[in-house]
């Protein structure tokens, strides 16, 4: 249903209905932002990049052929834009300017479930690329081939990395559950 809706919105946007694109922005803003903020942790930078991503998507919408899902295509733009932004940043700045308001305490957002606290902590400790892989697969239900298309890694590589991350995450969470 969502896929058909997406195609419908894309077609309407291409026909000149800008409001249809607004619906796509509304639908995918959180997903795009989540991907970017894993790679570019500063809230303001992440928001600026997320805006750039949607503007880029709008400008190149004519090149979207529907071979992949719209969300996968959009995630690919978000991922590559965030990665190239983080590469441009000086290494001494990376990670040193995370907004205080955005630094997440373990009990943020009422995360009283210890498993969720552990999960969030582990995600924050992971290299950005791994956190993105796992988030795309488990949070957004992207298949291995889709994750590979978004990140530019091979499907085999994604599979191996996901296996390794899953094992680690599950081990930690299991330890909590079993006391």
């Amino acid at each position: 249903m969502t896929i058909i809706d997406d195609i419908n919105f894309v077609e309407r946007t291409l026909a000149g209905d800008t409001e249809a694109f607004s619906a796509l922005v509304e639908r995918y803003r959180s997903m795009v932002f989540s991907i970017i903020v894993r790679i570019v942790p500063r809230q303001q930078d992440a928001e600026d990049i997320a805006q750039d991503v949607f503007v880029k998507a709008f400008s190149s919408l004519t090149r979207f052929r529907g071979e992949a899902r719209f969300s996968t295509w959009l995630c690919r733009i978000a991922y590559t834009t965030a990665v190239s932004h983080s590469r441009r940043q000086r290494p001494d700045r990376a990670g040193s300017e995370i907004d205080e308001q955005y630094a997440e305490p373990d009990d943020a957002d009422g995360l009283i479930d210890e498993r969720l606290q552990i999960l969030r902590r582990l995600l924050n400790q992971m290299p950005p690329e791994d956190a993105t892989l796992v988030s795309l697969h488990y949070r957004y239900g992207k298949q291995i081939e889709e994750v590979a298309a978004i990140t530019g890694l091979s499907a085999a590589n994604v599979k191996v990395r996901l296996h390794r991350i899953r094992k680690k995450l599950y081990q930690e969470i299991n330890e909590i559950e079993n006391g």
Binding site: S30, S34, A50, L111, S135, Y138, R139
Partner: peptide, 15 residues
């Protein structure tokens, strides 16, 4: 578990 994690959101007037 991942789907229970609160999603990070951009500011309100983002769209």
């Amino acid at each position: 578990l991942f789907r229970q994690l609160p999603e990070k959101q951009p500011s309100g007037d983002f769209t």
